[in-house]
Design a protein around this nucleic acid. Structure first.
Lengths: 204, 204
DNA sequence: GTCTATACGGCGATAGAC
DNA sequence: GTCTATCGCCGTATAGAC
């Protein structure tokens, strides 16, 4: 289907996603969405009943879009080293395509009593974490040091995702163009796994 | 000065900061601020002329509050290992006191053409980075491996700050209370420097 | 399904009394 | 400096014609 004559509801949803990702729920108006989708306010409400409903739909999709690839790779049947390289590579590519995605998700979950927290809570009640299990198995075999592997989990996600959240600060501080920033992110595909693996393999 | 009878402008500013940090600019109303400061809308506008002006004042202070401690420690005259430990420790304590600070700063700078980006740009035009210089000196002496040290800079900040940005997601995923989460953050005061130093000292 | 017109409330901001 | 009352605008949402 061509981008021009796609169905109205899809046109609205895609425009809404763009605007919500940039400005968040509070900063976005239904008028914004109507204009960006080349429709009008009445149509937005016709298809999605309210700004709130439209937002929730997009938020949940964005949340899944952010975390499904991670979960999938973490549960893949791959040797530790390959898994870490693959995880960092895939996540980085995802974030390069959609750099505003994590800021959108996290900033809408900033408040502990945010509706989004409740919304997400229903989704994934501990869908298991094969990665932690795998690390523990390697540690039992004596291949890596034995530590609290939640820290490793958190550290990998931090090093991959945070630079995109703080993209504008980094660009200002280090005086980078967008292209240079992305180059730096590409270099991290080697840097991050090397750091993690060096640490894990080094005797505690 | 007691918290009860502090000056009106301060009362408003502190309340505004609390509300802005939780809900951002778009999610906050002048009425919110008036209620939380136990005053009224007229007074808010009397002291700060507009919601926008009040916000900018608070944003700039929050930005400084976030990055001044970092810059100060990075420019301290300390051996590498001690500097990294101190940096991680101080930052973690700052974030435990004020966990919403980084989300506030980064989410208001999410858009490349955000007014906040321009505002910040005027502040610190490359105030020098003694930390990178120090790393390069150590590398020249052969004490640590020679790499792009911007990556180290970014990785440390990521590992310290990101967990607080994603606090609510982590708490959901790992089923943690706030106290347990903070305990995890305390443990990172050892984990992060160990990871960084192990990597740096390991021959490339 | 799509549009125009409009209802209705909440928003930021100010006027004017005290 | 502080308050009440109010203005004018813009937000979401809907009614009703086509």
């Amino acid at each position: 289907m061509s981008k021009i004559d796609q169905s109205t509801d899809l046109k609205i949803k895609e425009a809404a996603k763009r605007v919500f990702l940039e400005k968040g729920f509070g900063g976005t108006t239904t008028r914004d969405i109507a204009e960006h989708s080349d429709t009008n306010i009445a149509l937005v409400n016709y298809y999605f009943r309210s700004k709130e409903k439209l937002f929730q739909e997009i938020f949940l999709e964005s949340f899944a879009e952010t975390f499904t690839p991670i979960t999938r790779i973490l549960n893949d049947d791959l040797p530790l080293e390959a898994k870490i390289y693959k995880l960092v590579d895939n996540m980085t590519e995802l974030l390069k395509r959609d750099p505003l995605l994590p800021m959108f998700v996290f900033s809408e979950m900033r408040s502990e009593n945010s509706k989004m927290c409740d919304l997400v809570e229903g989704l994934h009640k501990q869908e298991g974490n094969a990665f932690i299990t795998q690390l523990e198995a390697e540690a039992a075999k004596g291949n890596i040091r034995k530590i609290d592997f939640d820290q490793i989990d958190i550290s990998i996600m931090s090093m991959v995702i945070f630079p995109f959240l703080s993209m504008n600060v980094i660009k200002l501080k280090k005086n980078l163009t967008t292209a240079e920033f992305y180059k730096l992110m590409d270099d991290r595909k080697k840097h991050i796994p090397e750091m993690i693996l060096t640490y894990l393999r080094h005797p505690g």
